[in-house]
């Protein structure tokens, strides 16, 4: 299938084997209303030092797939029903629970969206940072606190020495997110998954936090998966983007190419729905309709009921991730589109 070949193509660009490789991942939620298929055959890979942005609306499966990678999927009702998650060549789905726990935090870590609710309100920030060292390395309480101060300084929290004994609610939103990043960073993991790390922040602070993440990633040569619904956030930071819709990756591309020339009608719609200044006075563009109910995903291409280009084939056949090429057939590295009419979309 071209899905697999294009995934391999992407990884072939980097010299070594990718740090994380997700292959044909399926996740479903068994609920009273039926089985919600949240992730349906997702493939992606991240190498050390690389940033992959996973873009999608709420309910597109972007968070669920990352929870599956972290191994923090709520189960029940969530179940991984197929696929492989290869982390440093080892399939995490076959790793025992205790080993998996040791990987979390130490080798892969996560930055959560809302730092206020992701930090324990009754424990001091210093304690929670130090906890990383104490659970994984058995560091003493005192040394853990020293390391917590160092970490806070490294993520740019002023007055770290005094603030280490404060509680999360005494920090501003941006500072709290820095604490979350410091926690994720504590044991210098190889992979960080940031789940909408800036959604809860002011625009000015967003930029600072993104910059911090990008700097640290470069410094430690980590793989970074950036989950977001905000096209603006990823533009400067990500290397490549995977756009998700209804549990599938519908388009992959290097970041600037995706912005310049989308090869999927959904991506195109997303880009067009960003409000622009020169648009003043005109109606804002919106993709018509709603994302599908995951219990009843439409047959064929899941986007077909909302797609301006939908034809008969879109209602009948699920499009695989086609390798995207120039009009003359020249290869476009790392590009793929799950649209029967990607050519028409790309070349207009």
């Amino acid at each position: 299938m071209s899905t697999a070949s294009s995934a391999r193509m992407t990884t072939a660009d980097t010299t070594e084997a990718p740090l994380l490789q997700v292959r044909d991942l399926h996740v479903e939620f068994r609920t009273r209303e039926g089985v919600a298929k949240a992730v349906n055959g997702v493939n992606y890979s991240v190498s050390a030092g690389e940033t992959l942005a996973i873009l999608g609306e709420s309910g597109s499966g972007k968070s669920v797939s990352s929870q599956a990678v972290m191994g923090i999927l709520d189960s029940p009702p969530g179940f991984i029903t197929g696929g492989e998650i290869l982390f440093k060549g080892r399939d995490l789905l076959t790793v025992g629970r205790e080993d998996r726990r040791k990987i979390r935090g130490a080798q892969m870590a996560m930055v959560f969206q809302d730092a206020l609710s992701a930090l324990n309100p009754v424990l001091t920030v210093g304690y929670q940072l130090g906890e990383m060292f104490r659970t994984h390395k058995g560091t003493s309480r005192k040394d853990a606190k020293t390391k917590a101060v160092e970490l806070m300084e490294r993520v740019g929290i002023p007055g770290a020495r005094e603030r280490v004994n404060q509680y999360p609610h005494q920090f501003s939103g941006g500072m709290r997110q820095r604490v979350m990043i410091a926690m994720a960073l504590a044991l210098e993991p190889d992979l960080i998954i940031a789940d909408e790390p800036t959604t809860a922040l002011d625009v000015t602070v967003q930029a600072q936090v993104m910059e911090l993440l990008a700097d640290l990633q470069r410094e430690y040569n980590m793989g970074l998966i950036l989950i977001t619904h905000d096209l603006g956030v990823v533009a400067d930071v990500a290397d490549k983007i995977a756009v998700m819709y209804a549990g599938r990756i519908v388009e992959t591309a290097p970041v600037h190419e995706l912005y310049a020339r989308p090869a999927h009608p959904y991506t195109k719609g997303l880009l067009e729905s960003i409000p622009r200044l020169d648009q003043k006075g005109r109606d804002l563009f919106a993709i018509k309709g709603l994302p599908p109910n995951l219990v009843r995903i439409p047959a064929g291409c899941a986007f077909n009921p909302r797609c301006p280009m939908a034809q008969e084939i879109c209602r009948a056949e699920v499009p695989p991730l086609f390798a995207v090429t120039e009009a003359d057939g020249a290869e476009l590295a790392g590009r793929g589109s799950a649209c029967h009419f990607w050519k028409e979309t790309l070349h207009g």
């Binding site: 972290m70 923090i72 040791k102 992701a118 424990l123 929670q128 906890e131």
Partner: peptide
């Protein structure tokens, strides 16, 4: 969320419960 976060950063059951 902070319980999920603690789990995501490698805390075990007993630490989750007690702390």
């Amino acid at each position: 969320d902070y319980v999920t976060a603690a789990r995501a950063l490698g805390a075990g059951n007993s630490r989750l419960m007690l702390r």
